[in-house]
Design a protein around this nucleic acid. Sequence first.
DNA 1: ATTATTGATTACCTTAAGGTAACTGATTAC
DNA 2: GTAATCAGTTACCTTAAGGTAATCAATAAT
Lengths: 114, 114
Amino acid sequence: MKKKEHKECLSALMPVRDTLDIIGGKWKILILISVWEGNKHFREIERSIPKISTKVLSKELKEMEINKLITRTVVNGFPVRTEYTPTPYSKTLRKVIKELQRWGLNHRKEVFGR
Amino acid sequence: MKKKEHKECLSALMPVRDTLDIIGGKWKILILISVWEGNKHFREIERSIPKISTKVLSKELKEMEINKLITRTVVNGFPVRTEYTPTPYSKTLRKVIKELQRWGLNHRKEVFGR
DNA sequence: ATTATTGATTACCTTAAGGTAACTGATTAC
DNA sequence: GTAATCAGTTACCTTAAGGTAATCAATAAT
């Protein structure tokens, strides 16, 4: 019986891990906020996030597209523009991010004193 | 004006980063749940989490103590036992973890279809 | 005395994440 | 023709995270 409880506890963690894979790491939330703010083009997003490299941005954008947080559309034109837009679905993360933010704010008080 | 908005956006992220530093990574939430479930001793916790190594557990427990998620008390006795117990404060993470879990569950449906 | 258990620490190695910088190819401006 | 912009890619290097295994000190059981 104990074993069963244990397994259930672990399987309950899988979704948590999934979520952390998607918004965890150093850049994902930054990028999300950047596109939420209206930045659409690769260089635009790059410039909006201090210290990010093209390589990392490129990689992260791909992963975020796979995870349906952004849409990538190539606008066939003269300087070949690419547009990244947040999906409506990405907005469902707002609540999660708010919770993370709220807890983090309170935690500073708790650890470093008032 | 744009610059100011940008700075504010970044500072709002600091608490999010703090939170992810504390509960992110591979093991922290596992350990938290293990102690919430009543596991108190080092070996007990270690055995409750498949694949974790003593080194990592030791390191994580220290960090979690610093972050006031667990209390470490050495019980001077015959085999010198150490007890790890979750703090009441650690329970404030339940809401956050629930949100992460909820989103992750829904995400599987979204990405891999129903 | 030897072995086992508890709670770790240490040294060493592997893997993964992230950074640096050069380069491609297309087009437009000078 | 040269430089610059856009959207990346590629190769290479560094750092950080994590795993493996040996070891230590204390005590208890055999």
